[in-house]
C-alpha cells in the first residue's frame, strides 16, 4: 500500500505543482522516489509531528496541497490538537497519511499498533477518513486526495497486502465497494481487513452455506449511508470488520447509523479489538488470532438472530 500511495502521489505531483510531501523522518525505501522527483516540494521535518502539522497548515494556507506522512499513531495522536485547530478549523487541504494501520507493525509492539486512530480522526469537524482495502484502492484514494480540498486522513497498511480488485477500481470517496454479493449477512470491512473478510466469506459459504455480502468501506467518514441501510434491509445481519478498537471505529459509526435510521430489527455485531486490548509480541497472524475468529462470530450472530426471529432462514 505504501508503494501504491507514493507511486500515485509522485505521478500526480509531476502534473500538479501544488502537491507537497512532508515526513516526520519516516519513509525509508518508500518516499525517496518522490523526494528525487520533486525535491523542492519534499521536506523531512525531523521527528517532530506537532511541528509537521503546523508547517503543513502554513503551507496549505499558502496554496499547497500537503501530504504529511508518519506512522499511524505519530501522525494522529501525537499532534491531534494541531490537526484539530490548525488544519480542520481552517478547512485546509492537509492529508494526514498514517502507515501501519492496525497491527501490521506486529512485532514492534503496542506503541506501533494503530488501534484508535480512526476513532479520533472521525471526531474532527469536516475530516474525511479513508482506510483503503487494497493497493488499488490506496492508489485511487491518493489520486482523489490530490484534488479534493477537504482535510483528510488516509490510513494505510504497510506492504504486501493482497490485491483484491482487478487493475483498476471504481473508487469514490464516501461510496462503499461491493466486493462479494450475498443475501444472508453483510461483512462491512475497512482497511486491510478486506482480504480476511473475503476469506471468511468463502469459508461461511463452504462450511455453512451462508452467503455473505462483503463491502469494502474504505471511507469511514463520510460514511456511505445507502450501502449500510441496504445491507441491513436486504441481508438483516451486519458485521463490521476492522483492525481497530470496536469502541470508536467503523463499528461504532455503523452501529449509530443502524440505530438512528429506523431500520427495524437488524442483527449487528462488531469485530475488532475490544476495549482493554493490549497487543503483545508476535506475528501479525498471531495478533489477529487474538481478536477472535470472525467465522465463529458471524455464525453466533446468525444463530442468535434465528432464535429471535421466526420465519427467517435458520441455521442448523
Amino acid at each position: 500500500m505504501r508503494t501504491a500511495f507514493i507511486d500515485m502521489l509522485t505521478a500526480e505531483a509531476g502534473r500538479d505543482k501544488s502537491l507537497f510531501l512532508l515526513t516526520a523522518d519516516l519513509g525509508f525505501s518508500v518516499l525517496e522516489r518522490f523526494r528525487d522527483a520533486c525535491p523542492d516540494r519534499f521536506l523531512n521535518v525531523g521527528i517532530a509531528e506537532q511541528n509537521m502539522i503546523g508547517v503543513a497548515a502554513g503551507l496549505a494556507h499558502s496554496g499547497f496541497t500537503v501530504f504529511a506522512y508518519s506512522l499511524v499513531n505519530f501522525a494522529t495522536l501525537r499532534c491531534f490538537e494541531q490537526i484539530r485547530n490548525d488544519v480542520c478549523n481552517h478547512d485546509l487541504p492537509v492529508r494526514i497519511v498514517g502507515v501501519g494501520g492496525g497491527m501490521v507493525y506486529s512485532t514492534q509492539g503496542y506503541t506501533h499498533h494503530g488501534l484508535e486512530d480512526i476513532g479520533v480522526m472521525r471526531t474532527l469537524p469536516g475530516m474525511v477518513v479513508l482506510a483503503p482495502g487494497d493497493p488499488h484502492e490506496a492508489a485511487e484514494a491518493t489520486r482523489l486526495l490530490c484534488t479534493d480540498r477537504r482535510p483528510a486522513y488516509l490510513r494505510l497498511g504497510k506492504s504486501g497486502e493482497r490485491r483484491i480488485h482487478a487493475s483498476s477500481v471504481n473508487f469514490e470517496i464516501g461510496r462503499a465497494i461491493t466486493v462479494a454479493e450475498g443475501r444472508d449477512c453483510t461483512l462491512i470491512s475497512t482497511g486491510c481487513m478486506l482480504a480476511y473478510a473475503l476469506d471468511i466469506a468463502d469459508r461461511l459459504r463452504a462450511d455453512h452455506s451462508v452467503h455473505a455480502r462483503v463491502l469494502s468501506m474504505h471511507t469511514i467518514k463520510p460514511i456511505d449511508v445507502d450501502a449500510v441501510t441496504a445491507a441491513a434491509r436486504e441481508t438483516g445481519a451486519v458485521i463490521t470488520v476492522e483492525e481497530h478498537s470496536v469502541g470508536s471505529g467503523l463499528g461504532s459509526v455503523v452501529g449509530d447509523l443502524i440505530a438512528t435510521h429506523g431500520l427495524g430489527p437488524v442483527a449487528f455485531t462488531k469485530f475488532g479489538t475490544p476495549d482493554g486490548y493490549r497487543s503483545g509480541a508476535g506475528t501479525h497472524d498471531h495478533l489477529r488470532g487474538l481478536m477472535g475468529n470472525l467465522e465463529d462470530v458471524v455464525i453466533d450472530l446468525l444463530r442468535r438472530k434465528g432464535a429471535t426471529q421466526r420465519g427467517t432462514r435458520l441455521l442448523p
Binding site: V55, G58, S62, Q82
Partner: peptide, 21 residues
C-alpha cells in the same frame, strides 16, 4: 490569518507560511 488560542501553535504555522514564500 489563523485562529489561535491554544499555545504553542503559531511558530509552526509561521514556519509553514515562511517556507511556502
Amino acid at each position: 490569518e489563523f485562529s489561535t488560542g491554544s499555545l504553542g501553535h503559531g511558530l509552526s504555522l509561521a514556519c509553514g507560511t515562511a517556507l511556502a514564500a
